[in-house]
Every structure is written in structure tokens, then in C-alpha cells.
């Protein structure tokens, strides 16, 4: 009897562990000190809602270090591995925050690669950086999930996040309103230039500057090109510093999956 009870308890604990490790591993805090249990539960619930509605797994992971994946660029491979180990073959994205160098990066998989361009992932990350900087990790992750959910809703309505995606978190109308002063300024400038050209063409009276129409003969009899000296200037080439993240690395397609550029906070 006792043995049966112990075995059952072990099995239940094991199942709970597995559920946490795999089935419910949407939000994880490896160090156990950045998110409370209730916060993890809340975030997991939000992520599950996204999965239920859009069929995409959104994983959030905060950890102190990533042994074996210490460089900034390798964080994307770490994220890729974590996602594949948990949700192999599924669509989604994983956002990893590494506290040892305060670096974060997102990786997309499957449909996630089609939906989210690098630029839009960068924008979402930039949106949560202030919260991460001041230590509000729950707030950062909550905002991250909210942004992703909003983008997925707009994607379902036909919007696409291509190119530089400067407008990713804003609606088209908001972008248009913000761009109106620039559009007005450029239109005014072009109008002024065009009208200036037309008005100046109204007066076509110009004094002749030369008498080339009356040249009857030309003979070049003296030609001399005399080399004098050389001056040399040397300019040091400025080397570009590597940014926080994967640089221009590929996104979308391939075995590595899509990825954000990565940010420090």
C-alpha cells in the first residue's frame, strides 16, 4: 500500500514536472529569481491564449547564462535549440533574455518566420527594452506578448510586415498622420522647384556669352602639359563597431529560422 502510494505520488510529480518542462514550458525562468510563480502563470496563460487563437507558440525565457552559447550571435542558436527541444516542428517564436550580458534576442520558426520580419521583431524588442532595463521583467514580457498578439490580429486582417517595418507597431492611419508633415513639406518643395523652373522659362531673353556661331577657323598650335609635383593625403578608415545583435544575418527560411537583430538593455 505504502509502495503504491509512493509510486503514485512519484508519477504525479513526474507528470507535473513534464508538463512544466515540456507541455507548459511557454515561460521559463531558469534562475528562478526574475519572475515569481504567479507571474510565470499569468504569462503562460497569455501565451496559451495566443496559441489557442492563432496557433503559434510564443515562448519566453529568461536565464542568467547560456553555457556553450556565450557570444551574442550564438544566442539565436541557443534559442533555436530550446524551441526545437520543446516544440519541435511547430510554428512560433521564442524570446530569450540572458542576464549575464543583459542581451535579448528572438527567433521565429515555421509560420512565425513568414509573419514576423526581422525589423518588426526588432521593434517589438525595442518596445520592451525600457522595462527590462529597470528590472520589470514581468512588465517586459507582458508587453511583449501584448505586442505579438496585436501584430497577429492585424496579420489575420491582411496586414503584412515587410521591409524596414518602421510602422510595425502602428496602424497605417497612424503612420499616415505622422508622415503628413513630411509629405506636405516635400510636396511644397517640389512644387516650388517646378513652378520656379516654369516661371523662369517665361523669360527667354539672354545675352550671348560668346561668339561661337561666328568662328570660321580654329588651329591649336601650342599644347603643353607640364607635370609639377604630387601631394598625398592619408585618411584612416573608420572601422564600424558591431551592433548588439546578429548584424545583418539572414532571416526567414533555412534551418536556422528567422531572428531579430538582438538588443542590449
Amino acid at each position: 500500500m505504502k509502495k503504491a502510494a509512493v509510486l503514485m505520488l512519484t508519477a504525479v510529480l513526474l507528470m507535473l514536472f513534464c508538463a512544466t518542462a515540456f507541455g507548459d514550458a511557454l515561460v521559463t525562468d531558469d534562475a528562478g529569481r526574475y519572475l515569481s510563480r504567479s507571474e510565470i502563470a499569468s504569462l503562460t496563460e497569455q501565451s496559451r491564449e495566443i496559441y489557442d487563437r492563432y496557433g503559434l507558440r510564443v515562448m519566453l525565457k529568461i536565464t542568467y547564462s547560456t553555457p556553450g552559447y556565450t557570444s551574442e550571435d550564438s544566442l539565436r542558436y541557443y534559442a533555436n535549440t530550446v524551441f526545437n527541444n520543446t516544440y519541435s516542428g511547430q510554428d512560433g517564436l521564442i524570446f530569450v533574455v540572458r542576464m549575464s550580458d543583459r542581451y535579448c534576442r528572438a527567433v521565429t520558426k515555421g509560420r512565425g518566420e513568414q509573419i514576423f520580419s526581422r525589423a518588426i521583431l526588432d521593434e517589438v524588442e525595442e518596445d520592451v527594452l525600457p522595462s527590462l532595463s529597470r528590472g520589470d521583467y514581468y512588465g517586459a514580457f507582458s508587453a511583449y506578448l501584448k505586442d505579438i498578439s496585436g501584430l497577429l490580429a492585424r496579420y489575420e486582417q491582411g496586414e503584412r510586415f515587410y521591409g524596414s517595418g518602421a510602422s510595425g507597431l502602428k496602424t497605417r492611419k497612424e503612420v499616415l498622420v505622422e508622415a503628413l508633415p513630411v509629405i506636405g513639406g516635400v510636396s511644397a518643395l517640389v512644387t516650388a522647384v517646378v513652378m520656379g523652373i516654369i516661371v523662369s522659362g517665361m523669360k527667354n531673353v539672354k545675352k550671348q556669352s560668346g561668339a561661337s556661331d561666328y568662328i570660321t577657323d580654329t588651329r591649336l598650335t601650342r599644347k603643353q602639359d607640364l607635370y609639377l609635383y604630387t601631394t598625398t593625403t592619408r585618411t584612416r578608415i573608420q572601422s564600424s563597431s558591431s551592433g548588439g545583435g546578429g548584424g545583418s544575418g539572414h532571416f526567414g527560411g533555412g534551418g536556422g529560422g528567422g531572428s531579430s537583430s538582438g538588443h542590449h538593455f
Binding site: A211, I215, L220, Q224, D225, L226, L228
Partner: peptide, 12 residues
């Protein structure tokens, strides 16, 4: 750097 010279006749 060069010093260049051209010369000749032009009739008008």
C-alpha cells in the same frame, strides 16, 4: 599637379 598651356589661332 600640372601647369597646362594651350595656344593657337581662332578666326571670327
Amino acid at each position: 599637379h600640372y601647369s597646362v598651356r594651350r595656344g593657337g589661332t581662332v578666326s571670327f
